[in-house]
Nucleic acid binder design. Structure first.
Length: 549
DNA sequence: AGAGGATGTCGCC
DNA sequence: TGGCGACCCTCCTC
C-alpha cells in the first residue's frame, strides 16, 4: 500500500480542546501545541471508518470523564471522585477523606452482642477461658530495619518461614519456585536453591520431627521434601505427571499445613480439593476431598494448634471453612465463615486456637473471637487496604505468635501514604481486639509494597518480603543508638545482577562489611556496592509528616 | 523515560 | 458454564 492510498483510507480525525482556559501553567498540553495534527480533509472513501477523536481536554484516567483528574500528584494519589472509595468500597467519598483512613481505629465494625450461648460456649468457658490472659501486655514492635538482602530472588517473594530452632535463619520462596535460605545474623550468608520447583512456591512447612528438612507446595502441582543442607528436592506428590495439558487440567497447590499428631501433610489445589499425604510412608491416603466449591482455588490451610482434628481452610469461593479431620467429606464442614470476596488467608490464633483471623480481598480483616459460638458472622471487621491480587503476592494478616493475649496481627498495606514527599507503603500492626492501628512501620528505602510479612516465633523480629528483597526489622530500642539523630546503619547485601555487575567491575575483593555510604538511596543503582553497610535516614512512624489534605 | 508484559478476580453475556 | 473485557495507588525489562 502506497502512502497516498493509506491517507485516503484513514478515518476522519476530530480534535476537542479544553474550552475554559484553565490555569494551564506547567502542564503537558504544550507538547501537543505544535503538533501537525492530521488534517480532517479529503473525507473520500472513509464512510465505514468511525471518526477518531483526539481530546486535548483534561481527562480522568480512571473514568475518562472531564473536569477532574485522578492519579499521583507528587507522592499523593488523588482518587477519581466518581468511583466508590478505594479503601472501604462505599460511595460518596474518596480514599483521601475516607473516615477509615485517618482514624486510628481503622474502621472497626463490631458484631452485635450475641445472646445465644450454646453448649460449646460453656465448654470454652470451663476448659479454655482460664488459659486466655485477660491483661494485654504492651506490644513490642520491630520498627527499624536491622539488615536487608536486596534482590536475593529473581522474582517476587511469595512466602517466608523462620527456622523452628535456629533463631536467625529465614527461608523464603519466590514466584519462580526458588528457595532462599538466609542467616541474617551473618548477613552475607545466603543460599538460593533454584531447582526446587518450576513455578510459584506457595507454601512451606518444616518437618516437625526433623528441622533440617522442609515441605514445599507449588503451583507446579508438586509437594517437595528438601534437606536444607543438600538442597535436592524429593518429590512427594505430583498432580501433573503427564505435563501440560492446558489450563483446565493443570493442578496447582496452594495452601499446605502439617498435622504433626497425625503425621500428615495436608495440601489443597486450585480445583477445590484437599489431599492428605502420610509423612511416614510418603504415600497419599484416601481420595482427594472436595472442601471448597468445585473449580475454585483453596489458598489456605491451617491446623488448630491445640485440637489436632480441627482444620481451617479458605479459598476463592468466598468462604473460610472449619473441618473435622476425623470425618472430612465434601459438604460436611463444621462451619462456614462467609466473606464478600476471596479469602486470602485464615488462621487459628497461635496459642489457644480459639480465635480465627481472616484476610479478604474486600479490604477487611475479620476476627472471630470464639470458634465455639455462632460463627456465621465475625466478631469484628477491620477495614484495611489490601485489595490487590494481580502482580503482587496476596496480603495476609498474621498473628504475632508471641502475644499471649492473641490480639496483635501484622499485615502489609497496599495504599500508600505521603511521607515527606515520598509515597511509601507501611506494614501495619493491628490490635485485632479493638481494631486499633498499633504501629505503621516504614523505611524510606523500601519503596515497593510489602505484602509478605512474618513475625518471629520467639524473638522480637519481623521478616518482610518486598518485591524480590528481604528485610529484617527489630525494635528500635534493641538496636545500638545512632551516632547522629535520625540516622542509623543497617547491613545490606545485594544480589543477582548487581552482584555480577560488581564482580565485572572488580569490586568483589572489597570488604563485605563496614563500607559506610552516607545518605545512600538503595534505589540508586549507580551508587550501590555489594555487601555494604548503609547509613540511611530513619523516618520513624511517630515523627512522620503525613500530608493529609 | 516510557511502553509493554505478566498477572488474578469479577461481572456480564 | 465458559469466554471475554475491565479492573487499575505494581514492578520489572527493554
Amino acid at each position: 500500500m502506497n502512502r497516498r492510498s493509506r491517507r485516503v483510507l484513514f478515518p476522519r480525525v476530530a480534535i476537542e480542546v479544553e474550552s475554559e482556559t484553565e490555569e494551564s501553567s506547567e502542564d503537558e498540553e504544550e507538547d501537543h501545541e505544535e503538533e501537525p495534527l492530521t488534517p480532517p480533509t479529503q473525507p473520500v472513501n472513509n464512510k465505514k471508518k468511525a471518526p477518531i477523536t483526539i481530546s486535548l481536554k483534561r481527562v480522568c484516567k480512571v473514568c475518562k470523564g472531564t473536569g477532574h483528574e485522578a492519579g499521583f500528584k507528587g507522592a499523593t494519589y488523588i482518587d477519581c471522585p466518581k468511583k466508590p472509595c478505594f479503601l472501604c468500597k462505599q460511595p460518596g467519598h474518596t480514599t483521601m477523606n475516607c473516615p477509615h483512613r485517618v482514624a486510628t481505629e481503622h474502621g472497626v465494625v463490631p458484631a452485635h452482642r450475641r445472646e445465644f450461648r450454646g453448649s460449646l460456649d460453656y465448654l470454652f468457658e470451663r476448659q479454655l477461658r482460664a488459659n486466655v490472659p485477660m491483661i494485654k501486655p504492651g506490644f513490642v514492635i520491630p520498627d527499624q530495619v536491622d539488615c536487608a538482602i536486596i534482590r536475593l530472588h529473581s522474582r517476587r517473594v511469595t512466602s517466608l518461614e523462620f527456622h523452628p530452632t535456629n533463631n536467625s535463619i529465614l527461608l523464603s520462596g519466590d514466584k519462580k519456585g526458588q528457595l532462599g535460605i538466609w542467616d541474617y545474623n551473618k548477613v552475607y550468608e545466603k543460599t538460593v536453591y533454584g531447582s526446587i520447583h518450576s513455578c510459584i512456591l506457595n507454601s512451606m512447612k518444616f518437618n516437625p520431627v526433623n528441622d533440617g528438612s522442609l515441605y514445599t507446595a507449588s503451583s507446579d502441582g508438586t509437594i517437595c521434601y528438601t534437606d536444607l543442607e543438600i538442597g535436592t528436592p524429593n518429590l512427594l506428590m505430583n498432580l501433573n505427571p503427564d505435563g501440560w495439558n492446558g489450563p483446565a487440567n493443570w493442578r496447582m497447590l496452594y495452601g499446605m499445613d502439617i498435622s504433626s499428631s497425625k503425621s500428615l501433610v495436608l495440601v489443597a489445589d486450585n480445583f477445590g480439593f484437599l489431599y492428605l499425604v502420610d509423612m511416614r510412608s510418603n504415600k497419599r491416603i484416601r481420595e482427594p476431598v472436595l472442601i471448597h466449591k468445585k473449580g475454585t482455588k483453596v489458598v489456605g490451610l491451617h491446623c488448630n494448634p491445640l485440637q489436632p482434628e480441627l482444620l481451617l481452610s479458605c479459598g476463592n469461593d468466598h468462604f473460610a471453612r472449619l473441618w473435622d479431620l476425623r470425618r472430612i467429606d465434601a459438604g460436611d464442614s463444621l462451619g462456614n465463615l462467609p466473606h464478600s470476596r476471596v479469602v486470602n488467608s485464615a488462621y487459628f490464633s497461635p496459642l489457644t486456637g480459639t480465635k480465627i483471623l481472616t484476610t479478604s480481598q474486600d479490604n477487611r480483616i475479620r476476627v472471630w473471637d470464639s470458634i465455639f459460638g455462632n460463627i456465621e458472622s465475625p466478631s469484628r471487621e477491620i477495614i484495611h487496604s489490601h485489595d490487590f491480587n494481580r502482580h503482587l503476592t496476596c496480603f495476609r494478616a498474621e498473628w504475632d505468635p508471641k502475644d499471649p493475649s492473641e490480639s496483635l496481627a501484622v499485615i502489609g498495606r497496599y495504599i500508600s501514604e505521603n511521607y515527606d514527599g515520598v509515597a511509601l507503603h507501611p506494614i501495619d500492626f493491628i490490635d485485632t481486639s479493638t481494631g486499633r492501628l498499633v504501629a505503621e512501620v516504614i523505611e524510606p528505602n523500601i519503596k515497593t509494597i510489602s505484602p509478605v510479612n512474618k513475625l518471629h516465633p520467639r524473638d522480637d523480629v519481623l521478616a518482610t518480603g518486598s518485591s524480590r528483597s528481604l528485610f529484617i526489622w527489630r525494635p528500635k530500642e534493641q538496636l545500638e543508638p545512632s551516632e547522629e539523630q535520625g540516622e542509623r546503619n543497617y547491613r545490606v547485601s545485594i544480589c543477582n545482577k548487581q552482584e555480577k555487575k560488581s564482580k565485572r567491575a572488580k569490586l568483589d575483593d572489597e570488604s563485605d562489611e563496614g563500607d559506610d555510604v552516607s545518605g545512600l538511596d538503595l534505589n540508586d543503582k549507580s551508587k550501590q556496592k555489594p555487601g555494604a553497610c548503609y547509613k540511611v535516614l530513619h523516618c520513624p512512624p511517630s515523627s512522620k509528616s503525613k500530608s493529609k489534605k
